[in-house]
Simulated assay, not measured.
Amino acid sequence: MPGTPETGEPAAAAPRPDLVLLGVFGAAHGVRGEVRLKSHTGDPAAIAGYGPLRTEAGRVFELVSVRPLKDDMLVARVKGISDRTAAEALTNLRLHVERAVLGEADAEEDEFFHADLIGLTAETADGNAFGTVLALFDFGAGDLLEIKPSDGGRSLFLPFTKAAVPVVDVRGGRLVVVPPAEIEGEPPPAAGQVDIEPAAPRRRGLGPPAR
């Protein structure tokens, strides 16, 4: 089976609902086998606490240690990876954990795991493409979704409320957004990575009506 251009891994037939994306390997870091790792867990370093992580193609990796680099980017040491060449081969590999490890969010209670939201396609109520969810932040006044616009440009920040995000379809890989009249183009000055237990599901706020 041919591999994907980005990773060389066999292409997965379809996203697996039994796996939750927790992070993505980036470029090699230094010459001793360390690699950059973008974490999607609430506390970035908590990704190392889930035990072995796997790709959709079945490769398994054990994180020996992680240390912060910037924001949600870490520097990771991976078991069995001891030189730069081996670390370079990890670039763009997506790391998952079995959903059973996280437990279940209560959809009826409008709860969603942080990691489930990352990568969802955002579209408007009339079905037009809006962007892709990059991250979830809590700046002290409620959760904000960081969305990369479909037409390019800098990220936009929308409140994660029922008014601004009326539909979240994790299994369908999408959410519907109703952008307020004014959309934040930059995080507030006190911006910081949301600091929550990564296994705790997030609940949308009610928020003010979208305009």
Rank of each mutant, 00 (worst) to 15 (best):
G127N: 05
G185D: 09
P187V: 05
A141M: 06
K148F: 03
G23Q: 05
A164L: 03
G58K: 03
P188K: 06
I81E: 01
T132E: 12
A89F: 00
V31H: 13
R171I: 14
F113I: 14
A107M: 03
S155V: 13
V20I: 14
L69C: 07
F113L: 14
P201Q: 03
A46C: 10
A105I: 10
L21F: 09
T4H: 15
R84W: 01
N92M: 11
A76N: 07
N92T: 09
R59E: 15
R174K: 14
L134G: 06
N92P: 03
V97L: 15
V176C: 05
G140T: 04
S39W: 03
V170T: 12
E9R: 13
G42E: 08
L145F: 02
P187H: 06
G119E: 01
L69W: 03
G140P: 07
T132P: 01
F61L: 14
E197V: 15
R94I: 05
P198S: 13
A199P: 02
M1G: 15
P44I: 03
I81Y: 02
S155A: 10
V35E: 05
V170K: 04
D106V: 11
R171V: 11
L53V: 13
G49L: 10
T4D: 11
D195Q: 12
A105H: 08
G26Q: 06
G152W: 01
R84H: 03
G33A: 03
V64M: 01
L206F: 07
R171G: 15
F112G: 00
G80R: 14
R99P: 04
L19Q: 11
D71F: 13
A87L: 12
E88L: 02
G207R: 07
F61Q: 02
D18K: 08
L69T: 02
A200M: 11
A13V: 12
A125P: 10
T41H: 06
A89V: 00
E98W: 02
D151F: 12
L37F: 12
L158W: 03
R67C: 05
E6F: 08
A14H: 12
L37N: 00
R94L: 11
T41E: 02
K79I: 00
D195R: 15
P179G: 10
P209G: 12
V60P: 03
G140K: 13
P159K: 11
R202E: 04
V78I: 15
L37Q: 07
A48Y: 07
R32L: 04
D110L: 10
D43P: 02
A13Y: 08
M73C: 04
L37A: 02
D126C: 11
V165H: 01
E111N: 05
T132R: 14
R154M: 10
V97S: 12
R67L: 06
G205A: 08
G51K: 05
R171K: 15
A107F: 01
H40N: 13
A141V: 07
A13S: 15
